[in-house]
Amino acid sequence: MNAQTGPAAEPPTHGRHAAPSTTEDRPTDRAPRDDARRGAPDAEARAARSDRARAEARLGWYLAGPAFVVMLAVTLYPILQAVYDSLFNYKLTAPDDRSFVGLNNYVVILTDPVWWQALWVTLLITVITVAIELVLGFALALVMHRAIKRLRGLLRTAILVPYGIITVVSAFAWFYAFDITSGYVNHWFDWVPGIGPDLNWFAQQGTSLVVIIASEVWKTTPFISLLLLAGLAQVPGDLEEAAKVDGATAWQRFARVIVPNMKAAILVAVLFRALDAFRIFDNVFIMTNGANGTEVLSLLAYRTSIGQLQIGMGSAISVLLFLCVVLICFVAIKLFKVDLAGARGEK
């Protein structure tokens, strides 16, 4: 739902190779090594430098500290609270019945088909949207990259519109277009086999997911394409030129030169988008509210804790959702060697 949040953090750093820096090019959080790298020639100088380093460190934390503390306060504290709450049977409308149940909430959730169904649907949506967006996003990135000057502004504006639009608005726009009573899609496409005035898109899982995914893809593809655009800028132009001279076709240049050269950017884009898609909530909430097997994990967590006011059980689902995200991250970094540090220019 916050398509913009995550990945955006990453792209800015792509193009910064030429960026000059008055300080270390390779910052590190270990001060001693810092000193070592500076290779102080004698003790006095070293002392002076370490004094200066200390002052710099202090100033650094004075400046960066508030942001750091706020970030922790708004995430770390709540998730710890959620872990604690998840150990209780606690319903807001019956606060007196609150009791410690240990890990029982987790047992109930993990043995319940509702959880596994929601997990499956969430993964399905994630995989499909990311796959489609990767292809579309690449196409859009190439279009923006290659567009002649006169068209560039127009194309970028058009592509950015979905990016800026509220997800809920996108959900309503797609919903009303496909809805059996107010929509026109059935009338427009009744020549397509399977589509007709009687097709109720939101009455079964498959068709509901089609519209949900369509809205999600429309809204977030611009974002992934911007990430890829940043990657494209990194591909050395002379390599491509050389391949062209050697007689490589456009496809060969794409597959052999462009893609390998921006592998890191692609992996990072995919990871960020996947984590974002995994949190999908708005589109499902507006269009089906989880009916017909379209319930996703975020919606399940929301309905349980905010809807039914089952704070204990809802917190347990929240914690499991969080663990899923951590797991995906872990797998991506360890298995696929997504190099976040490299991608963000820290190496």
Partner: peptide, 24 residues
């Protein structure tokens, strides 16, 4: 500036940005 914990801050920002909102 050069100070210890720089990487920690950036990593935290990264972590917060992928945090599932519903969880908190």
């Amino acid at each position: 500036l050069d100070f210890p914990g720089k990487r920690l801050i950036l990593t935290t920002a990264l972590g917060v940005s992928i945090f599932p909102v519903v969880s908190i």
